[in-house]
Design a protein around this nucleic acid. Structure first.
Lengths: 229, 229
DNA sequence: GTAAAAATACTCCGTTCGGGTGATTTATTA
DNA sequence: TAATAAATCACCCGAACGGAGTATTTTTAC
């Protein structure tokens, strides 16, 4: 399609509070002609300021975002950015592998998820990949991601009945979740299902774990959005 | 971590019905000393036969599995293999990107998912990665995977819809209700809307009165059912 | 310009919730 | 049968919640 043109540069931004790491990364990315660094920031607030005040020519295509930041986190920053600038791709860039952050990052709209020990070459190809519609993910992270959508117990293989993707809730848990959605208290639920309030509480805690939420309201929202009930 | 031993070879198997492709792949993988090809198969049945009759020394660590196969599919083959040989990692290797197959592959226990145009070097590193607990996934595939767990974005594309508010909630109240639906606490909401937590609480109490509920969960359910947000 | 209404801020109080931990019983399955 | 997993019940603690009431400021309406 485009033959003559010198491949538009990818505009990149770095958000990273660790000075040494940020500068090193800046330096390394500088070696790649196909990239153009439009800004670096050492906090989520600074990043938001940059983006919101950018002239179009300096608007980043991709942001490498650290998760751990002073002030608002990289996840919160991503969320706020995505609200207004849907088109910016954000790659979470972190030393953390924990599921919670991964899940939240995805929820708020991160496109990729790389560990900081990723080789620079791979970081650069990741930057290109997101621009081509891909989602570069460190393999060890990808496995966790798969764990989130895979169902451990599934016997009908050829059955083409995908249904919804629930969070692997047991029937008892689903029953309790329904009561939660109805706005009932643990005690009320206990009476309804003939269990002790403590058991109900335990079930609800397990439900939270599986759904990656930590409040009734959040659980209700997720359950309804995903048609679990 | 791994220092002493001369790195045990990774035992690999290839399941691929296209002769040319299979032979080419066999040849290429032969250049890598760290790999040992234990068998190739041109069908799911042949693969199962190989594995079930393998002596332990020839049991593959990783199988590169084509999805499209004559007879039983690669997905079905994977399912049957995983039933008995949980420890074998299986990388789906395909030209297809469609969601259904990706989803099914994950359901039956595939560890990785690569497109056939993946460079041979990356295939080899993928083989190593699965042995180290990772899940190599082609970026374009990973994005679909993310789509499965990410929350649906609220698209304000069709603004022409007549906005109906079943309850006479004020704009401020609706704003706060939205935060409640997001599972936020009063304090978090207060920070978000620049009000004191007490004011937020007052608003929420008023919302409850108007909606005739008395808990966040119930409010969330009603709001979503009635499309207030 | 004034009165009514809405928005904001705060206090007290009792209850519920969510997180953590651990014991006991009951399937399930190897 | 033995080992495991799942379900049930229990307690502690601090934070958050929900109810009721009061008061000040701002906005709206007449």
């Amino acid at each position: 399609m485009e033959s003559k043109e010198p491949e538009k540069k990818i505009k990149v931004a770095i958000v990273e509070d660790h000075d040494i790491f940020r500068k090193r990364l800046t330096e390394l990315l500088g070696f790649y002609d196909e990239l153009e660094l439009v800004f670096t920031a050492d906090s989520g607030e600074a990043c938001l300021k940059h983006v919101f005040e950018s002239e179009p020519a300096k608007m980043p295509d991709v942001i490498l975002m650290d998760i751990e930041l002073p002030g608002i986190s990289g996840i919160e920053t991503t969320f706020q950015l995505k609200e207004k600038f849907e088109e910016i791709d954000i790659i979470m860039f972190t030393v953390f592998e924990d599921d919670e952050r991964l899940f939240e990052s995805i929820q708020v709209g991160a496109t990729g998820y790389l560990l900081k020990d990723t080789a620079i070459d791979e970081v650069v190809s990741s930057l290109k990949e997101v621009r081509e519609g891909g989602s570069p993910i460190t393999p060890s992270i990808a496995r966790k991601l798969i764990g989130m959508v895979s169902k451990p117990k599934n016997d009908n293989s050829s059955k083409s009945e995908p249904e919804v993707v629930p969070f692997d809730l047991s029937p008892a848990e689903i029953r309790i979740l329904e009561q939660v959605i109805d706005g009932k208290s643990n005690k009320e639920i206990a009476e309804e299902v003939f269990l002790s309030p403590w058991t109900v509480k335990t079930h609800i805690k397990n439900i939270y774990k599986k759904m990656h939420v930590n409040s009734r309201a959040a659980a209700v929202r997720l359950a309804l959005k995903r048609d679990i009930v």
